[in-house]
Every structure is written in C-alpha cells, then in structure tokens.
Amino acid sequence: MKKLHKLANPGKFYRLSEKILPWSNLLAISLCGLGLYLGLFVAPPDYQQGETVRIIYVHVPAATLASLVYAIMAITSAISFIWKNPLGSFIAKAAAPIGAAFTIIAIITGALWGKPTWGTWWIWDARLTSVLILFFLYLGYIGVWQIFEDQNKAAKAAAIIALVGAINLPIIKFSVDWWNTLHQGASIIRLDGPSIHSDILIPLIFMWLGFISYLISVLIIRIQSEITLQKIRAIQIMISEQK
C-alpha cells in the first residue's frame, strides 16, 4: 500500500491540471484560429516577399518556442537535480518531444520560406545552424530516456544532460555566430529587417499566445499520461508480488 501512497503525490497535479486543460485547449484553438485568419486573409502581403511572408505566422512562434521549451526543460531538470525530486525530470521528459517538434516545424517552415526568398532550401546561416544543433540536443535528450531501463536512473541522467546542454547552448550559439561571420558575407536578408507593421505584429502575437496555450495543453496531457503509466507499472509489480 505504501507504494500507492507514494504515487498519490502527483494526484494534486492531476486535479489542478484537469481544471487548466479545458481553458488552455479553448485558448489554443481560438487564438490560433484568430491569428491564422488575420495572418492569412487580413494582413497585407510584403512588398518584397509577396505572399510567402505569411509563413512567419507559423515560423516565428515555433522558433521562439523551440528555445523556450529547452529553457523550461533546463529549469525543471535543475529543480529535480538539486532537490532530488524526479517530478521535474518527468516534466522535462514530457516537454522534450514537444520542443523537438517545434524545432522541426521551425526548420521546415524556414526551408519553405527560404526556397522562394533565398532561392535555396537550406543555407548555413548562423540561426539555421543553431536551430539545427538545438534539434540534435533535443534528440540526444530524448535518447537518454530510452537508453536507460531504470526510469529513476534515466531521470537523473537526463537531468544532467539537459543541464550540461543548457550551459553549453549560449557557448554554442556564440561560436556559431562567430563562425558564420567568418564564412558568410552579411548579404543575407534577415527576417528582422525594418520595423514590423502592426498589421503583421497583431496576428503574430495571437499566434504566439495560441502556440503557448497549445504547449500547455500538450504538456499537461503528456504529464498526465506519464503519471498514469507509472501507476500502471506500480500496480503490475504489486500484483506480481502478491501472487
């Protein structure tokens, strides 16, 4: 019975998340819907890039969330490592695939935008390269969880990897920027050129908030299913011990 009691701890989280989930779902759908409508039909096309510019309504929120999720992972991992509580590590575990998905969305939309604008799918630009490396870090983090059979060990190992990655990320970013200025001319058209018009900015903010709501929803669902999975495992072990 002790074991069940130990697992009842995340119950608090479960009840709280049940209250948040419907709201974050609603916000995600409505904000993204509104943002997409404004972005695709109301906002004017760019005078240089034409209709292709509309891809930024997906690309920019995805790219910012890609790094934001890694920051969340680093913080929750640090908490779990310092206070020796696996819950933080499990939150990071739930977040990692979402972050990886945002990263890959950012890369693909970037490539789709790059083809008509730069004339090529991929360019070894500092940002693109950094995002690609971020994607590798996500894959590495997810890999650690799968390699260890003992989930408690995996939780601690993954926390270390996430922290080491988080400390290194600024250094990597700095080195990539350095590398890029040496190898590339400054002729690349960047997204953040002139100041952004409010017709573009407002749908962008809607999309961004919508993406964050979506992140919260998926995160909650993934953590809930992780808790349930742990419960099932504990019950299975208890049953096998009683026999």
């Binding site: 490396i133 990897i161 700095f174």
Partner: peptide, 15 residues
C-alpha cells in the same frame, strides 16, 4: 549512442 549525444557540445571547440 550516449557519446554521440555529447557531439554537439564539441562544436565550439571545432569552430
């Protein structure tokens, strides 16, 4: 595989 996970951390040294 774990050693390969470390590979991205080598990038600054390489650059």
């Amino acid at each position: 595989l774990i050693s390969l996970l470390i590979l991205p951390l080598y990038i600054p040294v390489l650059i």
